[in-house]
Write a protein that binds this DNA or RNA. Structure first.
Lengths: 148, 148
DNA sequence: TTGCGTGCAAAGGTTTTGCATGGCA
DNA sequence: TGCCATGCAAAACCTTTGCACGCAA
């Protein structure tokens, strides 16, 4: 789809490197900024936004909007893994992203397409919920979940 | 859980009335504000935010964060329909929300729970994609979708 | 009358934009 | 050298908050 999208700059490498180092979870612009600043390689906020915008366009990074957070979240997507062929589970407690390789889910997509006429986009669709680890923690710490 | 959550004011009625009139799609604070202003009953932005916050707390309205939009989206949820028991399809073209009553999908949730240890939250999970109507339109108007 | 709801304006935070400068190709 | 990327600051937005006043109960 592209091939040579822009120059290869130090800032782009720094951001991309940070993204790949945190591929198992999502990150925020502030997180990137703070990390790079504390490592002696601070870069402007505008640059981070602009680079992330390009990376999203190129499909290298995905953009999330999580309810609990007020700002946008970004996450690296594996080029090898065909993420357009499987779905993703996002834990709302720990932010972990799980790549769901599952035929059952793939069947679901084709069922919804054929029976309900709706073409699900796996790249944009994320299943939100609670992962096993966090569910265990929850049972230990919060015997019952209630408002107030 | 509530029962008498606050006073019954003219502004609350206006907002709730607008929400129920647009139950098939999501709306924004700006949309509500503009609509009410153009109908001779303008109300302050802060009031809209505060009322929506309460309505969300009461479970009368749901709050979305859609990628294409920079601001929060809200939508009325039917009290009769048990929306925690089914999933939702959101068309990214026209914004239509489809309540998916489908056993196949319910099976998916229990499958993911038992096989992958992940508890999907139907209230937060939305399948994004393109509905039948928009797919038809797309074929007519845009023979191929490509970035430039 | 009491106290919550409202409206206005100001503040807070996130993201975008303009412009001069610096660095990649 | 030409053009894109960067950095800084300002602007644009969305959302929240403080305070005085109005209105429901």
């Amino acid at each position: 789809m592209n091939g040579s999208n822009g120059y290869k700059t130090k800032q782009r490498d720094l951001i991309l490197n940070y993204m790949t180092s945190h591929r198992e979870s999502h990150v925020t612009v502030n997180g990137i900024s703070d990390h790079l600043a504390s490592h002696g390689t601070p870069i402007g906020t505008a640059t981070i936004y602009r680079q992330l915008e390009k990376l999203v366009e190129q499909g290298v990074v995905r953009k999330y909007t999580v309810d609990s957070s007020t700002c946008a979240c970004f996450q690296y997507v594996e080029p090898d893994m065909k993420c357009h062929e499987h779905f993703h589970l996002k834990c709302e407690r720990c932010g972990k992203l799980i790549h769901l390789e599952c035929d059952f889910v793939r069947e679901l997509a084709s069922h919804v397409q054929s029976e309900h006429g709706f073409a699900i986009d796996p790249l944009r669709t994320v299943f939100y919920g609670v992962c096993r680890d966090c569910a265990d923690l929850n049972e230990k710490n919060y015997p019952e979940e209630d408002n107030e």
